[in-house]
């Protein structure tokens, strides 16, 4: 049994700012013979922005999918505010998901709906708000992400950066306690990338919620992070404040931050 001394075993209301709201305990996940996560133990603190970095294929997105129960670990526990999502009943899993918003890498906007309908969708399914109230909330969410008045546009007519912003508006429309971003800067030019980072920072100040960002963009990471965790070859090799990470002497982390693609192997790990 993994060590459970974490506040993430308590419900949302009983977790104070700065305490773990999500905890991974000795989490293993494989796909076929590929062992993606090899015993991850990691905490995400309430009210803080944690950025998970690492090269492609190290299991960053897998961590995110484990948090919302889209994937189930072979071993270990994933606690999200009182629920072990690895073993949760469907009803409890749904309850956890209602408190989490997620911005997908390519937006995952529904092509068959307009931008406004995309953002309104979770409100229509989960609340009894009137159409007028939903329209107001959608307009406000679009203003928050800097895209006022595009409710009637089709997702296919939007640029990559706009799609990500609309996806963010949809993720926060239900006022979740945790918002996750899967590669918010991927495929964007540097200026748009900076805009997205700025937006994440502003939303964190405005909403005061817990953000988890998956990224391999080093500049963006230091722009938004309160804490940074680095995954490599399925292991958590470093975690701490941006300052601590920046001054870490862990060789793999230093190579990654220096954009050296030839990362040194971990002791005892196959490359």
């Amino acid at each position: 049994m993994a060590e459970l001394s974490t506040s993430a075993t308590r419900p949302f209301d009983a977790i104070a700012a700065g305490e773990p709201i999500i905890s991974f305990r000795d989490v293993h996940k494989s796909f076929g013979d590929k062992h993606i996560l090899r015993g991850i133990t990691l905490d995400f603190l309430r009210g803080e922005t944690t950025v998970v970095i690492g090269p492609s294929g190290t299991g960053k997105s897998v961590c995110m999918k484990l948090i919302v129960g889209l994937l189930v670990p072979e071993k270990g526990d994933v606690w999200v505010a009182g629920t072990n999502v690895a073993e949760a009943h469907e009803r409890d899993l749904m309850s956890v998901r209602r408190r989490i918003g997620m911005m997908f890498q390519d937006g995952a906007l529904f092509d068959s709906m307009s931008v406004g309908d995309n953002i309104a969708f979770p409100l229509q399914r989960h609340t009894k708000l009137s159409d007028a109230e939903i329209r107001d909330q959608v307009a406000h969410a679009l203003e928050q992400v800097g895209l006022p008045g595009i409710e009637d546009s089709a997702p296919s007519a939007l640029s990559g950066g706009m799609r990500k912003r609309v996806s963010l508006a949809r993720a926060v429309i239900t006022k979740p306690e945790i918002v996750m971003f899967d590669e918010p800067n991927s495929g964007l030019d540097p200026l748009t990338s900076d805009e997205i980072d700025g937006l994440i920072g502003r939303m964190k100040e405005d909403l005061g919620i817990t953000f988890i960002v998956i990224s391999h963009d080093i500049v963006g990471t230091f722009a938004v992070a309160d804490r940074i965790a680095m995954l490599y070859n399925g292991h958590l090799i470093a975690q701490g404040t941006p300052d601590a990470v920046l001054h870490s002497d862990q060789p793999t982390l230093r190579s990654f931050l220096a954009r050296n693609m030839d990362l040194p192997p971990l002791p005892g790990d196959p490359r």
Partner: peptide, 19 residues
């Protein structure tokens, strides 16, 4: 349509919305 939605993570998005 469903296969494209799976590819574009739209089905995952619906699940994450607790739907």
């Amino acid at each position: 349509q469903l296969a494209v939605m799976r590819t574009k993570e739209q089905i995952d998005a619906i699940e994450v919305m607790a739907i």
